[in-house]
């Protein structure tokens, strides 16, 4: 039996997924991806798989988000760096 909570959860999950994929602002996309990971963990709990929920929350939402943010920072620095500014101390 699907309750209203599950329905809301599924809809929000789809919305965040579309938002993360369609967002032009990469920072926003990453934050939405992390939200998606946390909601996914909730979904795993609702599906009675707490083991996967723990792993999803820790790796999917936490570590992957940090790695993505790290990559974004790297890309921005690469983009900002002009040839003349490359030799900063």
């Amino acid at each position: 039996m699907i309750g209203w909570f599950d329905l809301l959860l599924g809809l929000t999950l789809c919305t965040t997924a579309v938002g993360a994929l369609a967002s032009r602002d990469l920072f926003r996309a990453i934050v939405l991806f992390m939200v998606f990971g946390l909601l996914m963990a909730l979904v795993w709990v609702r599906l009675e798989a707490p083991d996967i929920a723990l792993a999803e929350a820790a790796i999917g939402a936490g570590l992957t988000g940090v790695l993505l943010l790290d990559t974004l920072g790297y890309l921005r620095r690469r983009y900002m760096a002009r040839p003349g500014r490359e030799e900063a101390p």
Binding site: P50, D51, A53, L54, A58, I59, G62, L63, V66
Partner: peptide
Amino acid sequence: PGGAFQAGSVLAASGV
């Protein structure tokens, strides 16, 4: 529920 992978990722989070 728990185990090596979950504990390892929490450990990794503290390391990060």
